[in-house]
Design a protein around this nucleic acid. Sequence first.
DNA 1: GTCTATAGAAGGATAGAC
DNA 2: GTCTATCCTTCTATAGAC
Lengths: 201, 201
Amino acid sequence: MKDDKTEDQILDAAEKIFQRKGMDGARMQEIANEAGINKAMLHYYYRTKRFLFEAVFSKAFSLIAPEINRVVNDDTELFEKIRKFTHSYIDFIQKHPYLPNFIIQELNRDSDFIKILQEKKGFPDFRNFRAQVEKEVRDGNIRPIKAEQLFIHLLSLNIFPFLAAPLFKGFLKLDDKTYKAMMEERKEEISDLLIKYLKNE
Amino acid sequence: MKDDKTEDQILDAAEKIFQRKGMDGARMQEIANEAGINKAMLHYYYRTKRFLFEAVFSKAFSLIAPEINRVVNDDTELFEKIRKFTHSYIDFIQKHPYLPNFIIQELNRDSDFIKILQEKKGFPDFRNFRAQVEKEVRDGNIRPIKAEQLFIHLLSLNIFPFLAAPLFKGFLKLDDKTYKAMMEERKEEISDLLIKYLKNE
DNA sequence: GTCTATAGAAGGATAGAC
DNA sequence: GTCTATCCTTCTATAGAC
């Protein structure tokens, strides 16, 4: 079982609170309440707030990393890859709506976090994707483009609409339901945009 | 002069601190130090931390709003508009690097903020842009696309790379200088992507 | 391992002199 | 308007009983 042990109950509770409120906004007491456990236990298992936070952050990142690796470390054909990533990422994020904001926010808050993550195994390695894009360009299958720019396009188009959901809902005057439906539509929209552009079609 | 009055000195200092650390991470003492002034003055002029924060947030939003209005409330021809927005937004953000993260973060933290902003004059009105895109589609000048999706594409491609700069620098193993150069390149990359797609060219 | 109680520090806010 | 001093609450963290 996942929640057998107090340590895991704490981590689950901390996840909820930290992802909603961030490192600075979260309170140890709140996490303890959420875990249905005493505040002293948090320190017993994780020593400090910072260590607990880092455990949560690492776990969050290890959820995202495989998604990224589907792009950079996978030998699917390029268009298929774009299509699959876009579809699966948007499904993934519907399940973890707080994740992108949490990651982005804390990386901007503490610039050392990314260095810690880079050391870990499973950290996405971009080289395969670069090679793949360069080959497609060389073979004349796609319009000339830098792999980095395509990668940034792909992630921006997929991630930002969730990060900026309150903003877009405000601008476009959409309710939650309509906005969610629009995110579903984007699976096709994004694939279509990138693939037709690359194919020069 | 801008900094004649204490009230403005405080607002400037608060801007710096809040934009770097957010509402929860910022300390009144830190803002006072930054302003070279006493902590009691902050309360004298702005009563509470929250009011001071709201003043900063409103000002930040009033800096971004005109940028958005260049897209939604301006009768420039569509392709020209995409090109101009992309170029000017990327310049704008190099001058205010903390702004997008600040806005997004606080809108996610407090979902009521957007409602307050919607009331204010100058809040972007999407209707003109929708009409413009619909007309271009009807006239057969561009590929069929919903105005909302195009709007989200445009903002995502422009804003996210700054928001996620630490992440992309980590993934792509780029230093600040190289990344900045890449953001310059994106002015053309983004325009090219959207316009060629729309023109079906 | 788990709890209660509390230390110790920090932060927002105010009183009151000038 | 501006400052110093201080109140009071909140928060992280630990001590110590069971």
